[in-house]
C-alpha cells in the first residue's frame, strides 16, 4: 500500500506554544482517516500543515513520497473542505465549484460540464445559478465538498466538516461521505472533536492531546484497548480505574479501563470492596446506565432495561471478569 501522507517528527511552534510536538504519522492511500481530539489538541494545526497553510517548525512532511515543506498550498494536489465552508460570496454555486478549473484555464464549456457533474455527484444538480447565501447549511456543505473534489485531489482534507449541521443532517452526511470516499478512492483526512463521528466513519483514528498523538488505531482498537487514561476518558464511556482500586480487586497495581457492559450488578451487599450504592440511573432505551458509588470510586454499568435494574439509593454488589480489565499506561 502506498503511503499518501507521511509526517516524521513534525513540530509546530506558535511563539512559546507547542501546537504540534514531534508528530509521527503515516496515512495510507485510499484511507478514511480521522484526527480526533479536544479543541487545542493540535489536530487542526496538523491538518493545516498537510494543506500547506502552516509550515512545520521542524520535521519532515511527505505527500505521496514527495517532500512538501516549503511547497505553497496552491501547488499541492490536496484540497480542503473548510469548517465555515469558505464559499466565495461573490460567485454563484457553479463558479465556486469551477474556480480551480478556471485557474487551470480549462475551456468554459468543459469547465461547466465538469462542475455540473460534480454537483450532480453531491446531489445538487440544478443549483448552479444560486448564490451561496441562498443555500441552507447542508447545501453549502455539499458545494464546499464539490468544489474541493472537482480537481480530483490526491488527498481531501475536511476540517470539522459536519460541525455546523444539526444531528439528523449530520448522520445522513456521515453516510454519504463514507460512500463517496469508497466510490472515489481518494484519501480522506478529517478533523473532529466528536468521537462518535470518528468511530462511525473512519478506517483509522489518531487521538490528539496537547500537541501529541496519544494513540493510532482502528475504531475497535481505540475503543476496546485505549492506550492511556486520556484516550479511555475521551473516546469512550469506559470506566477508568486507578491503580489502588485495580490492586484491590486483582492484586496488581496499574491503571485500567473497564467497559460498562462488562459489569454485572446484583442486589444486596457482597464482597465489601465491590459493594456500593446506586447514585444515578439514566434510561437510554434498550439499556439503562447506572452509576454505583463504591466508597468514593464511581463505576458506570450498562444493564438491559427492565425490572432487574436496581433503584437509585439501593445497595448493590458489582462484579466483572478480571480479563475484561484493560491495563493502560498512566499518561494522564
Amino acid at each position: 500500500m502506498t503511503t499518501a501522507v507521511s509526517l516524521k517528527a513534525i513540530t509546530r511552534r506558535f511563539g512559546e506554544v507547542l501546537a504540534l510536538d514531534a508528530i509521527d504519522l503515516d496515512i495510507a492511500e485510499g484511507e478514511f482517516f480521522a484526527m480526533l481530539g479536544p479543541s487545542g489538541s493540535g489536530k487542526t494545526t496538523c491538518l493545516r500543515v498537510i494543506a500547506g497553510f502552516e509550515q512545520p517548525s521542524s520535521g519532515e512532511l511527505s505527500i505521496f513520497g514527495q517532500r512538501a515543506e516549503g511547497v505553497p498550498p496552491y501547488k499541492r494536489n490536496v484540497n480542503t473542505v473548510f469548517q465555515d465552508y469558505a464559499l466565495f460570496p461573490h460567485l454563484n454555486v457553479i463558479d465556486n465549484v469551477a474556480y480551480s478549473l478556471m485557474l487551470r484555464k480549462v475551456p468554459v464549456a468543459e469547465r461547466y460540464s465538469q462542475a455540473e457533474a460534480v454537483l450532480d455527484m453531491v446531489k445538487l444538480a440544478g443549483y448552479g445559478m444560486r448564490r451561496p447565501g441562498q443555500l441552507s447549511g447542508g447545501q453549502r456543505q455539499r458545494v464546499a465538498l464539490a468544489r474541493a473534489l472537482v480537481n480530483q485531489p490526491k488527498v481531501l482534507l475536511l476540517d470539522e466538516p459536519l460541525g455546523a449541521l444539526d444531528l439528523k443532517l449530520r448522520e445522513q452526511m456521515q453516510e454519504e461521505l463514507k460512500s463517496l470516499q469508497k466510490r472515489l478512492g481518494i484519501t480522506f483526512i478529517f478533523v473532529t472533536h466528536d468521537q462518535g463521528e470518528a468511530m462511525s466513519m473512519a478506517d483509522r483514528i489518531a487521538v490528539f492531546n496537547l500537541g501529541k498523538i496519544m494513540q493510532v488505531g482502528t475504531p475497535e482498537e481505540i475503543y476496546l484497548k485505549p492506550a492511556s487514561r486520556f484516550v479511555a476518558d475521551f473516546v469512550g464511556s469506559s470506566n477508568v480505574l486507578p491503580p489502588d482500586f485495580v490492586a484491590r480487586t486483582t492484586g496488581k497495581a496499574s491503571w485500567a479501563s473497564l467497559r460498562p457492559e462488562a459489569i454485572t450488578v446484583t442486589a444486596g451487599a457482597g464482597q465489601p470492596d465491590l459493594t456500593g450504592t446506586v447514585v444515578a440511573r439514566n434510561y437510554l432505551g434498550a439499556t439503562t446506565r447506572i452509576t454505583v458509588d463504591l466508597g468514593g470510586q464511581r463505576l458506570h454499568a450498562v444493564l438491559p432495561s427492565g425490572a432487574g435494574v436496581p433503584l437509585e439509593g439501593s445497595v448493590v454488589t458489582v462484579d466483572f471478569d478480571p480479563s475484561a480489565l484493560h491495563r493502560m499506561d498512566d499518561t494522564p
Partner: peptide, 23 residues
C-alpha cells in the same frame, strides 16, 4: 472577508496574485 476565503482560494490553486484578483 474572512481569512478562510483567501486560504480556500490558495487551496484551490490560486497564487497570491490570482487570489487578489479573483477573490
Amino acid at each position: 472577508t474572512s481569512g478562510s476565503l483567501i486560504e480556500a482560494s490558495m487551496d484551490l490553486g490560486a497564487d497570491q496574485f490570482q487570489t487578489f484578483r479573483y477573490v
